[in-house]
């Protein structure tokens, strides 16, 4: 298969961690970094606050306090929770459907050379196509309800998980298979004790990278056509020239992304403890 690059888990377009920095050990150092991170955030908010109205027309960039008050209004009248749960639901469903399908197909093609070679050109073709371009088709098929958003998210997730599973199943060290065969492992036992755990690192990377993409899929679906969800709120606010509303929607998405990513990183570190400290 030509799509997955060799050498390590396929990270899709870009890794979920924007900057992969080796973790430092020192506790005091970590604290200083945390303080610095907060400082940067506050500085940016202050710059935004003072620039708005003085340097740049608030029509374009709104203002932090306006955004906060918008979020407060949404939270108070229930709009925020309703929209968020809708988007989150679409994202989770899409993630589950896409990753299950991606794992199953990746595993099947990874184990069978014939299947892999048969489907290679088609998978490469769909992989190279921007999945977003399929959104109109998906809406045509599944309507403007949650189904089309789930389909959008699932489609994007499918490829990330598929490619990583495929590569992971292919990447099994043949020495491990030989040694376990001599120890008396049946092919089924080899699958359980060697192939699955070996592929797990790849599959987990695929899953981790997929979560933000599932969010993207769901929101894109909502932006194109919907009557609910965070994407819909952003689209609607933009239609009304309500810049504060647009920024409020974006802020919700950013926070969702950060929280999900932190949780996944914890999970990955736990499951892949055997890789040693990195």
């Amino acid at each position: 298969m030509s799509a997955p690059p060799a050498g390590g888990p396929v990270a899709g377009a870009e890794s979920a961690e924007a900057l992969a920095v080796p973790a430092t050990g020192g506790g005091a150092n970590d604290l200083a970094i945390r303080a610095g991170q907060c400082g940067i955030g506050i500085a940016l908010l202050l710059a935004w606050h003072f620039a708005s109205g003085r340097l740049i027309d608030p029509f374009y960039i709104s203002a932090p306090l306006a955004v906060a008050s918008k979020l407060w209004t949404w939270a108070a009248d229930g709009t925020l929770w309703l929209a968020f749960s809708y988007t989150f639901q679409a994202m989770i469903l899409g993630f589950v459907v896409g990753s299950l399908a991606g794992f199953a197909v990746g595993f099947a093609l990874g184990r069978s050379d014939v299947l892999a070679r048969l489907f290679d050109p088609y998978i490469t073709a769909i992989y190279c196509m921007p999945k977003i371009a399929l959104a109109p088709l998906l809406i045509l098929w599944f309507g403007i309800g949650i189904e089309s958003k789930v389909a959008m998210a699932a489609l994007i997730v499918f490829f990330l998980v598929f490619l990583n599973t495929f590569s992971g199943v292919r990447d099994v060290n043949p020495l491990y298979l030989q040694v376990t065969a001599i120890m008396g492992a049946s092919p089924l036992q080899q699958l359980r004790h060697v192939v699955f755990p070996s592929a797990a690192a790849w599959v987990l990377t695929g899953l981790k990278v997929s979560v933000p993409y599932a969010l993207i899929g769901a929101v894109v679906g909502e932006l194109i056509s919907s009557n609910r969800g965070i994407g819909f709120l952003i689209g609607q606010a933009s239609g009304l020239f309500d810049t504060a509303g647009v920024f409020a929607g974006l802020a919700v998405l950013a926070v969702t992304g950060i929280v999900l990513n932190a949780g996944l990183k914890k999970l990955e570190n736990r499951l892949l403890r055997w890789r040693g400290q990195r």
């Binding site: 040694v179 001599i182 060697v194 755990p197 070996s198 797990a200 890789r275």
Partner: peptide
């Protein structure tokens, strides 16, 4: 004929499964 399970096999490369203690 096929993997000889009456033997133990040890190589220069590490053959321990890295995900097992």
């Amino acid at each position: 004929a096929g993997a000889n399970t009456a033997t133990g096999y040890m190589t220069q490369q590490d053959s321990l499964l890295p995900w097992r203690t």
